[in-house]
Simulated scan of single mutants.
Amino acid sequence: MTLSLFNEPSAQEIAPGVWWLRAFALPTLTSLQDGVNEVLAAAPWRQMQTPGGQTMAVSMSNCGPLGWVSDRAGYRYQTHDPLTGRPWPPMPQTLANLACLAAEQSGYVQFKPDACLINRYLPGTRLSLHQDRDEQDFSQPIVSVSLGLPAVFLLGGMARSDKTFRLPLSHGDVLVWGGPARLRFHGVMPVAEGDHPALGRMRINLTFRKAA
């Protein structure tokens, strides 16, 4: 099912606890991109392994006190980049401010992210349905910022087999989910071929979480 919100407000609760803030990040786009580039200079893209030994299609990096990692030992958050042995780069203030403002706009006024997972999707890359369950406090929301190529976000239910809604996310859109929706399954359909004027042949997703 594709959810259409044409001619409706730019910020709307599309399901209990799920807010779609269209074009919300556009006013701070330049500083966001500068912040991402700063992080990547210290913690470059890498493709992690699943616990089963497969290489993930999505390239990743992290910033903030904690970073999400995956390897043969499992999924977890840790304070140090496994590639460099150094702490993850600090979360740029522009990124943190955007996440907090989006959360507040969606009714989550106490959100203080300590982890930002940065994902890079090339054309054809997808993310299978999953739940974000590695965090310690499920009372805190997830804030997801889309940059670059458009993507279709899949929003499911509390079981993997539940029907999914398709949300066409564009450059600058922010999706926030928490409360009754915090553990909903979600994913991303394969990114279509394209060339975005700001980021070229890629989609970048910033996912802010309170991990500890």
Rank of each mutant, 00 (worst) to 15 (best):
S170W: 01
S128R: 13
R133S: 13
L149N: 10
F165Q: 15
V145D: 02
R160C: 02
L127G: 14
V143E: 08
I142T: 15
H171Y: 06
S146E: 03
D137G: 08
V174N: 00
L175A: 10
G156E: 04
S161D: 10
T125D: 15
D162L: 00
S170G: 12
V145H: 01
F138E: 13
T164C: 15
A151V: 07
Q140G: 06
W177L: 11
Q136T: 12
A159K: 14
T164V: 15
V152L: 09
W177V: 00
S144G: 07
P150N: 10
S161L: 07
D162M: 00
R166F: 00
G124V: 08
G148V: 10
R126V: 00
L149G: 06
P180Y: 07
A159Q: 15
H171Q: 06
V145I: 11
G156D: 11
F138Y: 07
D173Y: 02
S161C: 05
H130G: 13
G179A: 04
F165I: 12
H171T: 11
L169I: 02
Q131E: 09
L175N: 09
W177E: 01
L147W: 05
G178T: 06
Q131K: 09
L167W: 04
M158I: 09
L149Y: 03
F153W: 09
R126C: 04
Q136K: 14
T164Y: 01
S161Q: 13
V143K: 13
L147H: 10
L155F: 14
D137F: 13
G156I: 01
V174C: 09
V174G: 11
V152G: 00
D162V: 08
V176Y: 01
S128Q: 11
D132I: 05
T125W: 08
V176W: 06
L167A: 08
G179M: 03
G124Y: 08
Q131C: 07
K163F: 02
P141V: 08
L147D: 12
S161G: 03
L175W: 03
P180M: 04
D137T: 03
W177K: 11
D162E: 10
G178V: 02
F138Q: 13
Q136N: 09
S144E: 13
